[in-house]
Nucleic acid binder design. Structure first.
Lengths: 173, 173
DNA sequence: AGTTTATGTCAGTATTGTTGACATTCCAAG
DNA sequence: CTTGGAATGTCAACAATACTGACATAAACT
């Protein structure tokens, strides 16, 4: 970017051609597959050795409970964007298996505050270590400037509501 | 970025902290949700008005058949990364409804070459218009440099096999 | 006391993935 | 030419995850 050349209007908008956009769409598709493949594998192993039936839904629940310990079911519902029935099935399994603990709220005793047990944290570690490793490799290959651009585009691609939830989480809810 | 300050080793690797990586993981999650939300809505509408039951799997099939007309089932299988049985269910519905045409191969009559019918192309247009519009908005907000970084990181995040398939597609299969 | 809110549960259905079994077609070795 | 294997595609059954709708319980609010 040093000696930045003269950029005319056409060049500066080349990245908005339909072909470029299609490539972006497909890159997103393939990258997301890579992004989820490691946790999927780890969960398959875990299921075999522990006789469980966990999938991506369980991973997501564990991830966000770990991020925001003590979060309520309702809060998790909003973040994950699924119905309570769907989340409940997942949480019930995790609680029964002792990976998640559900504590009745002290202020509002209708609420259930969710925490990972040591076992839950152990699984979360395995999952997020793998996912971070892939992200770290990608980040390292790409370099800091590319990473900044990556984050900028991703945030612009979120639905506004979710962008709000996202930045809240980043600030440490 | 003007008056670029002295950057020591620690600063230059700040983007690789666990916290930064976690944020990247979550950004990916929320962005992908946004990325798929428009097609999901369009397919829901289509299903209601046409009495169909299409989902993301049908969208992906239509997308890649449109990209590579005449592709075989096996080829599509590799791109999509699902079992042939799973893809077959999807293709059967699309063929029965007249959105996709399956032609027996002339060289190898075991192969089926897939093409979109005019109706299939019409639906593909609606879907990809919406997805491109979101991508275009995000790209426009972020600017060309961020887009370049976005693409770089996404490609680094793919599985190597998929990166191969991806770049092949970009070169025009 | 009555309403709203937060949560949990049950039943039913749809999408999308899996495996297993099988049919068809091609090709190559005997 | 035939036979056996490999490639390709189809059918059937099952599992995970989502959805909607209905309802129960308990706690908070008014």
């Amino acid at each position: 970017m040093e000696h930045a050349p003269y950029i005319n209007r056409a060049d500066s908008l080349l990245y908005l051609t339909d072909e470029q956009l299609r490539q972006g769409i497909e890159a997103m598709f393939f990258a997301y597959r890579g992004f989820t493949s490691d946790p999927d594998r780890i969960l398959s192993d875990f299921n075999e050795t522990h006789g469980a039936n966990y999938g991506r839904a369980h991973h997501r629940a564990i991830h966000f409970i770990n991020c925001a310990p003590g979060t309520t079911v309702n809060n998790l519902l909003n973040i994950l964007g699924v119905t309570k029935q769907s989340l409940n099935r997942v949480l019930r399994a995790l609680i029964e298996d002792g990976l998640v603990e559900s504590r009745v709220g002290r202020m509002d005793r209708r609420e259930r505050h969710l925490h990972l047990t040591p076992e839950g944290r152990a699984l979360e570690q395995r999952l997020s270590d793998a996912q971070r490793a892939r992200m770290r490799d990608a980040y390292r290959q790409a370099g800091p400037q590319a990473v900044a651009g990556f984050r900028t585009v991703l945030e612009a691609m979120m639905d506004p509501n979710m962008r709000h939830a996202f930045t809240q989480i980043q600030d440490g809810s």
